[in-house]
Design a protein around this nucleic acid. Structure first.
Lengths: 145, 145
DNA sequence: TATCAATTATTGATATGTCAACTAAATTAA
DNA sequence: TTAATTTAGTTGACATATCAATAATTGATA
């Protein structure tokens, strides 16, 4: 067996990539023409209307440059509308279009099902334990960052 | 508290991103002008001389297009050399240069230290448990892929 | 052996990640 | 109130991910 410390990061990487591929495939299969990342950003706005791009970036662990570009694409797809903010002209008001809202209400079922499939057979206890270990790793890395 | 199934993928994403940032920062800080992904590819060759690009892709969970491009950069950095394979002309023989070898023997200490820092305070038992849970998720997703 | 299929790798297009430089606007301080 | 600082967001450059199309070569088969 390989060394544990090495295998862990290997497994982490593989898990994220496999889950993303899986989730993306299911989006397309069910007819949703949207990437996982675009969904993440759209969802952040859906859950908190009036959210700023900076807040979105923090919420989905992306930098503001990525958020800007993803928002551009969401607008091109007519799922989102961008208007200048009434009181702070550095900011934008991001508003999900009716088409975007419809997509969100439909795609949530795929999202929930994806999570269910990916986690089936895994106990809450194991998930909680894993979450704690993951958070521990994050804290360890953050101390140096 | 948010729903567990949701939080888990959130934590996974955050962990990978934080660890990558942390590891990359330490590469640069210690004077190694190489990205994490370039290191992964170079390491695959280092550990298995004569490896094909297809095998590298499998080993580091990248597709062959990414591997091709990363190899291009490694060659530009003069850490790697690419020659036609003697018996199969579809393939290439990838050879790490002396400069590349030197880098690899030095950077391994940073890599080991990174893992040590990231995992400090976490028991082997918890790591093994996490690995099993991660593998379970991978298997669940693969069934659908 | 001529053809067809499989294998290995590259390339183009598009999306995203990361860093740095930049603009514009708002806030704070002198 | 002017000047400096901070904040919000954009843009360019480069690295990587993913998909599809392609090229070259090899292997299988009819």
């Amino acid at each position: 067996m390989e060394r544990l410390d090495r295998v862990i990061f290997y497994s982490l990487d593989k898990t994220i990539k496999t889950y993303r591929q899986f989730a993306q495939k299911r989006f397309f299969e069910q007819g949703f023409d949207i990437t996982i990342d675009q969904w993440l950003v759209l969802n952040a706005i859906y859950e908190k209307p009036g959210i700023t791009q900076l807040e979105i970036a923090g919420k989905v662990f992306k930098d503001t440059a990525s958020v800007t570009r993803i928002i551009d694409l969401l607008i091109k797809k007519e799922l989102l509308k961008r208007d200048v903010h009434s009181s702070d002209r550095r900011r934008f008001t991001l508003e999900i279009t009716p088409v975007g809202t419809k997509l969100m209400t439909k795609i949530i079922h795929v999202v929930e099902k994806n999570r269910e499939i990916a986690l089936q057979g895994i106990s809450d206890k194991d998930l909680i334990l894993m979450k704690e270990t993951l958070n521990h790793i994050i804290d360890n890395c953050k101390q140096v960052l």
